[in-house]
């Protein structure tokens, strides 16, 4: 079974400078494989090459070198392949003089759909994205979350195998985020493959099966959430955190976070056993509320990976 999306040595260089060449390497030899039925989080700081990758997959820009395969096919500009991909761009405009269902009708016609087939498909998509109550309202009166549902709807009209979403939850309120997240999870459960590019790391962590982190056009890490978030430690919720007690904990190698009115969280490093940590707490006169294992968050992993990449870049620039 081929990968749903696969890139090999994918490179994109923008030529710049009229007199002296100042090429911009947007993507450098990217090897990526997105499996069927997974949600793939595609992460990276601004300018790391996420949107460049997506645009190349969609045929909106062209690779300098390397190959892209979608469902095993290299002719990604063909109508057959395009039918298998749904795309939701970040912050796209949907004509506000049209009703929700009219927007979907316009996009449906672009797939060559018409008549009863199109109407049936619109009904189904409206049901999936939960726009039934507002389908006859003008997009002008839609909230940001509803517009995002229209965006999702237009991408689902051809019942594509793969959905590519650029910042699907950015700018939405928590409730709308949860609703979009639920829709995306149900699409995955229905067998679709989703590639999500986002800065909302908590959202990505909650929903993704695998993630990749990109920095300056290079893939820095890629794997399942469980594979990547291996850095675990223990936290102790404690009270009685006076300045003297905090000093003693620091000497013992335990850091404190979020200390308010003498209560806070103590972070026990991986190198220290829990018994040693409890001993140190007793000696400092702390009362222990709870002890919990803690896994590194995606945000922490992201900061660590990007931070390391930046330091490497700086070091090579100064060398």
């Amino acid at each position: 079974m081929p990968e749903v999306i696969e890139t090999q040595q994918l490179t994109k260089t923008y030529e710049g400078g009229y007199f002296a060449r100042q090429d911009v390497h947007a993507l450098k030899s990217l090897d990526l494989a997105i499996h069927r039925g997974e949600i793939f989080g595609y992460l990276g700081p601004n300018g790391s090459g996420k949107t460049t990758t997506i645009k190349m997959i969609l045929g909106l820009i062209f690779p300098t070198s390397g190959t892209i395969r979608v469902m095993g096919r290299e002719d990604i500009a063909s109508a057959d392949v395009r039918r298998k991909i749904g795309y939701v761009p970040e912050g796209a405009y949907y004509p506000d003089f049209l009703r929700g269902e009219e927007v979907l009708r316009f996009y449906g016609q672009l797939y060559g759909l018409g008549g009863k087939d199109l109407e049936k498909r619109i009904d189904k998509v409206i049901d999936i994205v939960g726009l039934g109550h507002a389908r006859k309202r003008l997009v002008r009166g839609y909230s940001k979350g509803m517009r995002q549902r229209v965006g999702l709807g237009q991408a689902l009209l051809s019942d594509p195998d793969v959905l590519i979403l650029d910042e699907p939850t950015t700018g939405l309120d928590p409730l709308a985020r949860k609703e979009i997240r639920d829709i995306l999870a149900s699409l995955r459960d229905g067998g679709k493959t989703l590639m999500i590019s986002s800065h909302e790391l908590l959202e990505v962590e909650l929903i993704s099966n695998r993630v990749a982190i990109l920095y300056q056009g290079q893939l820095r890490t890629c794997g399942t959430i469980d594979e990547l978030l291996t850095d675990r430690d223990t936290t102790i919720e404690a009270s009685g955190l006076t300045p003297e007690a905090l000093e003693k904990m620091k000497q013992a190698g335990i850091s404190a976070e979020d200390v308010v009115n003498g209560r806070g969280l103590l972070r026990v490093p991986k190198t220290m056993s829990l018994y040693e940590a409890m001993d140190a707490c007793r000696q400092a006169g702390l009362a222990i509320g709870s002890v919990a294992p803690r896994r590194e968050t995606l945000e922490e992993l992201f900061v660590r990976i990007v931070g390391t990449a930046r330091r490497e870049e700086l070091a090579s620039a100064t060398a």
């Binding site: 909106l60 795309y87 672009l110």
Partner: peptide
Amino acid sequence: DNKVIYTVLSKPVS
């Protein structure tokens, strides 16, 4: 500018 072109050209439209 308003990115409609992305949603249109990502469909089977040459």
